[in-house]
């Protein structure tokens, strides 16, 4: 069972990211997935988060307790949720938006300039999809095929191509990073 926390600010597509992962896992990877989001005043403009649990068995407890993966796309979201990340967890950040504290335990940090990539592709609104590509490559929680099936069903039809491009950008960047990691830099890839 993998617990994932996505954190950022309202408007970044954080919730949508959770839905895409959950849908990919439960409909196209044939796993069980439960997605929850934070509701309330904090969801409007301020810190915003989505949580997804992906499992081979039915998910019983519906909320994340000790996330295995945390994705941070804002400093505020990072500060709020980083403490709950497990000591063995993966921490994925948008490197231009989050300045991480020194790492604790065996947490591995992976950084991607998701928003910058999105801007280069023409629209910063798809930064979350770049991040999803990156997440898919780094975490291996969902398959790339499942993600590519889920995305077109959850974005406006005229933006499907752009979104898939954004996804690929993040995914390739992630694979590259992992390749470097394997070529002798294991364990240090993310330590900055």
């Amino acid at each position: 069972m993998i617990e994932i926390r996505f954190a950022g600010y309202g408007g970044q597509g954080i919730i949508r990211s959770g839905i895409i992962i959950g849908k990919a896992a439960s409909l196209y990877d044939d796993k069980f997935a439960t997605m929850n989001q934070s509701f309330g005043p904090e969801a409007r403009g301020g810190a915003c988060s989505a949580q997804v649990i992906v499992s081979d068995d039915r998910v019983l407890y519906p909320y994340v307790t000790v996330p295995n993966v945390m994705v941070a796309m804002s400093q505020e979201g990072y500060s709020k949720y980083e403490p709950e990340l497990g000591d063995e967890g993966l921490l994925l950040i948008d490197e231009d938006l989050v300045r991480p504290k020194p790492l604790r335990g065996n947490i591995k940090l992976y950084s991607v300039p998701a928003t910058r990539f999105a801007e280069e592709l023409g629209n910063r609104i798809i930064a979350n999809v770049v991040m999803l590509g990156f997440f898919t490559a780094i975490s291996e929680v969902v398959t790339v095929e499942a993600m590519k099936k889920a995305i077109p069903t959850l974005v406006p039809s005229r933006f499907v191509e752009l979104n898939l491009k954004a996804f690929d950008k993040g995914y390739e960047y992630g694979l590259e990073l992992r390749g470097k990691e394997k070529r002798g830099k294991a364990g240090t890839a993310g330590r900055c």
Binding site: G18, S26, N36, V59
Partner: peptide, 10 residues
């Protein structure tokens, strides 16, 4: 309840 109402699953 709120948890079931807002929980997204297959």
């Amino acid at each position: 309840d709120e948890c079931v109402g807002h929980m997204t699953e297959k």
